[in-house]
Design a protein around this nucleic acid. Structure first.
Length: 651
DNA sequence: TTACTGATCCTTTTT
DNA sequence: GGATCAGTAA
């Protein structure tokens, strides 16, 4: 069922033949295999615009799912640019935001309050910690991280506690899973995975609710489909099961999230899974790369060939660019020298008036950013880091957000215990444990239990009561219409929190809190209808990459994972050493090793102009000096593409 | 109850 | 090298 390409549409101008067909084929299931730099985003945005402009589809009937908020914002912006205001009502969203949005509407259908909280990683940790403690388990045997990872895995596989086969796993673990879910439920909280897991549950248990969305979303598009997991697959499957107009875009070679449950077979089996008797799957392959210099592309192709588990029969990427500065490799005597080398190169670029926002340093782990950060400061080069200690994860920020979260959702146990003794009120660990147990035994949320607890002495009782009354006072003010900014200011002042940090000479924290007030002010200014709920959701779902500020002339530093979907003129991939990249935890397992290689492939193909690889012979690992061996990926890329002049010799 | 000290375990990658 | 934790003194 090939369609005639509408040559008249301005939305097709400037696209190549395959791109044109991918844009204009809107009916039925469509698979777009899009190699790195092949104009994928362009195809998706033009396709959305095409649907609206040429096929007269109402924007409200289009769903476009991405993985990061940044990607979705970018997509929205570019569609807007193409359509000029006609795109209002489009659902361009991340999987998780979509989950939050739909769950807010129908939470009661699965026994949740619409004011539910969303727990991030650190809240999951403290909740799990409480669970292990309540269950009297050995925290060594049942490490928090391990339990959470397992549970996250279950949820990614769409398995509820009673669906996990205990014979396959430690039965205790399944008990922990059930108890953890119960704890979340008591707190009226969802964790990240729940935003998808519970959404699927909602749809399963309430076909009439699913039907609303099936009818609404006539056209569905999914970006980065190679990184979807079982639960995301199920969601797309459910939602598209009425109209069957589902278009997925992805690239097997760029799958880098299998550790999060992403399953490459989703994209490999798309044909089989989504074809209907009436509508077969159409497949388009974008294999011309418009981004990278030929040497980069050649190197990337050589590298990825070492992966034996590539299953699709897709063609090798072809270069369209001519200009080429080659690839350099610098082997530094030690990590400090590596950083200095990169600095001197960037300094040179700056001297040549290169806009520094076109320069990026990519590394495997966050820990590597520190040495570069120090060098940047020494050289006086402006920089920005993404994802390391995210703003909203700082302790002082979390404390205040916990007050706000508790105001929004009084059931939120984690937030309560976070603030009950901050600033110190003489309610220590012992009293907190008693409150927890009392709350648990009587099935009363801990906040309310503070009013009736009879298992503590009168002195502590009084402290509980005072907290409870202060809480109610704040809540009254919120309901009376006090703005979020004013309320937060009041909390900071009345609890003397700035003073508290000041006293401890923690001026950074004071500054961060001022910055928090700024973000709230900004939120209230920019949002049409600012709410406490909206602000909290934004602060928890936002990820490091979302704060990326292209307007600033700063060099950017980030992990390779964060770089997916981005492109830069000048790319530095640092720490090309065995044990670091590929990471030591992946050396033993060929599957993991292939994922590392794909990660390297992603990194290389971010390059628009010049790629520089580097590594050190000697590096601090866990505070111990260790001799490093150059990464095997360098060998796989091969000498011809590494400019020999840049080799540094010896120590 | 808190605040400090020394020991111990790590960290891969993220919505 | 650093975050987190158990143990101890005030």
């Amino acid at each position: 069922m090939s369609e005639a390409v509408n040559e008249e549409s301005p939305l097709l101008v400037g696209l190549n033949e395959v791109q044109k067909r991918a844009v204009s084929t809107v009916d039925g299931p469509v698979l777009i295999l899009a190699g790195a730099g092949s104009g994928k985003t362009r195809v998706i945005t033009h396709r959305i615009a095409y649907l609206i402009q040429e096929n007269q589809i109402n924007p409200e009937n289009i769903l476009a799912v991405t993985f990061t908020n940044k990607a979705s914002r970018e997509m929205k912006y570019r569609v807007e640019e193409l359509l000029g205001g006609m795109g209002k009502g489009l659902w361009v969203t991340t999987f998780h935001s979509m989950g939050a949005r739909v769950l807010r509407k129908h939470a009661s259908a699965i026994g949740y309050d619409r004011n539910f909280s969303i727990y991030d990683d650190s809240q999951q940790k403290s909740t799990m910690k409480a669970v292990i403690k309540l269950m009297n388990l050995d925290p060594k045997r049942y490490a928090i991280r391990y339990c959470l990872d397992m549970i996250s895995g279950f949820k990614a596989q769409s398995l509820a506690p009673d669906e996990v086969r205990p014979r396959d796993f430690d039965p205790k673990l399944v008990e922990i899973y059930a108890a953890y879910q119960e704890e979340l439920k008591q707190s009226q909280a969802f964790d990240f995975d729940d935003l998808l897991f519970q959404l699927v549950k909602l749809f399963r248990l309430n076909p009439e609710i699913l039907a609303i969305y099936q009818q609404q979303f006539e056209y569905i598009m999914v970006d980065e489909y190679q990184d979807t997991n079982v639960i995301q697959y199920q969601l797309i499957r459910m939602l598209s099961n009425l109209h069957h107009n589902v278009c997925v875009v992805g690239d097997e070679d760029q799958s880098i999230y299998s550790w999060r449950g992403a399953d490459i077979s989703n994209i490999l089996d798309f044909k089989k899974d989504f074809a209907t008797p009436e509508k077969g799957v159409l497949r388009f392959e974008l294999s011309i790369n418009y981004r990278c210099p030929p040497a980069c592309l050649e190197a990337a192709n050589l590298l990825i060939k070492n992966n034996l588990q590539r299953t699709s029969d897709k063609a090798e990427l072809m270069a369209s660019k001519q200009a080429d500065e080659g690839i350099s490799y610098y082997l530094a005597p030690n990590a400090q020298d590596e950083a200095d080398y990169v600095m001197s190169r960037i300094d040179q670029l700056s001297f040549e008036n290169v806009d520094l926002s076109t320069v990026v340093i990519l590394y495997r782990t966050h820990a590597q950013s520190r040495i570069f950060e120090q060098s940047f400061m020494r050289y006086g080069i402006p920089y920005q880091i993404f994802g390391n200690v995210r703003f909203f994860e700082r302790r002082e920020i979390r404390d205040i957000l916990a007050y706000l979260a508790l105001l929004h959702n009084p059931f939120d146990a984690d937030s309560l215990f976070r603030v009950v003794n901050f600033p110190p009120r003489g309610i220590g660990a012992t009293s907190q444990d008693k409150l927890r147990i009392f709350s648990h035994n009587h099935s009363i949320p801990p906040l309310l239990a503070m009013d009736g607890i009879d298992t503590v002495g009168p002195a502590v009782q009084k402290k509980f009561l005072m907290f409870y009354e202060y809480y109610n006072d704040l809540r009254d003010r919120l309901q009376a219409g006090t703005s979020l900014l004013d309320l937060t200011r009041a909390i900071l002042e009345e609890l003397e929190i700035l003073h508290y940090w000041d006293q401890k000479d923690e001026t950074d924290r004071v500054q961060n809190l001022q910055e928090l007030l700024n973000t709230i002010a900004e939120y209230e200014r920019e949002e049409e209808n600012p709410t406490l709920e909206g602000y909290l959701e934004k602060s928890v779902l936002i990820s490091g990459i979302d704060a990326l500020d292209e307007a600033q002339q700063n060099v950017t530093m980030m992990t390779l994972h964060n770089a997916k979907g981005l492109e830069y003129d000048h790319v530095f991939i640092v720490g090309m050493e065995e044990g670091l990249f590929p990471h030591r935890n992946s050396l033993e397992d060929s599957q993991n090793l292939e994922e590392e290689r794909r990660l390297c492939y992603v990194g290389i193909t971010r390059t628009m102009q010049k790629l520089t690889l580097s590594g050190a012979r000697l590096r601090d690992v866990y505070g111990q000096l260790s001799y490093q061996v150059p990464s095997r990926f360098l060998r796989e890329i091969g000498d011809p593409f590494l400019a020999p002049t840049d080799f540094a010799v010896g120590i």
